[in-house]
Amino acid sequence: MTEAASDRQRRWKDRMPPDRAWKPRAGISREARASEQDRAAGSRLARAVDLGEGRYARASIALRLYRRTRRIRAYLRWSQEGETQERYVGEVDAETRAANLAQAWEMAHAAGLVTTEAVPPESWASSAASRAVMSANKGRDTKPEKLLRSALHRQGLRYRVGARPLPGLRRTADVVFTKARVAVFVDGCYWHGCPEHHRPAKKGAVFWQEKIAGNRARDAETNEALRNAGWLVIRVWEHEDPEQAARAVVKAVKSRQETGPVDQS
């Protein structure tokens, strides 16, 4: 038995692993599940099972709690010729689901169960990870934006989409409540340097560090400019639960509708 395996056995010897260590969030969408797997693996392309002849299947990690032994086991799952395939990866022992997924992906790569798809020769990206990030990037109408807008709409709020809060300021908010002066931005974890999920690029590290730092500085400037004009700025990370984020936005909008925005001009 390896030292790591021995440590895992000791970790849960006297207590049951908490739900947050393995259980997925209730009501999580298929798109959010895929994003969760992408973050844990390092990129979408790092979730590849090589089927041969240049063909790949996109795999996922499933975490299962075995209550009798107090163990969390990770399994690799993918579809091949219409049939679901599954391979045991190993036991994981972190305190959170995100950390256990990342741990399981590392084990799957180390065991050769998965690989990272090669960047096509015609691609301009410097690496598979960069290509995956760039391909997934959209200027507007991203999945997290749509989920948040849907949640706000169900709460009875009406808003403008992709609008400039201040006509003279070249900054576009994802959701704008003009009368209440509330501007909502849904920030991508990679492009805006999420402290929880941002994974720095290994190739062209200096370039990407400067790029992300520039985005964060621009965010701060936008926040300050809008606040000075009497706007309330709300920033939502793409990984946040859209229903929880929507409730915070609704509360802020209704509060400002009742009291009125503060004019600081």
Rank of each mutant, 00 (worst) to 15 (best):
M1K: 12
M1Q: 08
T2N: 07
W12H: 08
K13E: 05
K13M: 07
K13R: 15
R15H: 15
P17M: 00
P18W: 02
D19I: 09
R20M: 08
R20P: 10
A21K: 04
K23H: 12
K23E: 02
R30A: 08
A34Q: 03
A40S: 10
A41W: 01
G42P: 04
R47T: 10
V49N: 05
V49P: 07
D50R: 03
R55M: 04
Y56N: 02
A57E: 00
I61L: 00
L65S: 10
R67M: 13
R70V: 13
R73S: 11
L76F: 07
L76D: 04
W78M: 08
W78L: 08
W78A: 13
W78H: 15
Q80V: 13
E81V: 15
T84R: 05
R87E: 11
Y88D: 10
G90W: 00
E91Y: 02
E91K: 02
V92R: 04
D93T: 04
E95T: 12
W105V: 14
V114M: 01
T115K: 03
V119F: 06
V119Y: 07
V119G: 14
V119N: 03
S127N: 07
A129S: 13
S130E: 09
M134Q: 08
S135E: 08
K138E: 05
K143I: 15
P144W: 12
A151L: 01
A151W: 01
L152V: 08
R154H: 10
G156M: 00
R158F: 10
R158N: 13
Y159V: 05
V161T: 11
V161K: 08
G162F: 02
G162L: 08
P165D: 00
L166V: 11
P167C: 07
L169Y: 15
A173N: 03
D174S: 02
V184W: 03
F185T: 01
D187V: 03
H192R: 02
C194E: 04
H197E: 07
R199N: 12
K202R: 15
K203Q: 15
V206P: 01
V206C: 01
E210H: 15
I212Y: 11
N215K: 11
N215H: 14
R216D: 01
A220S: 14
E221R: 05
N223H: 12
A225D: 02
L226F: 10
R227C: 04
N228D: 06
N228F: 03
I234C: 06
V236I: 12
P242D: 01
P242H: 02
E243F: 00
E243V: 01
A246Q: 01
A248N: 06
A248T: 11
K251S: 15
A252E: 02
A252Y: 06
Q257C: 06
Q257S: 00
E258K: 13
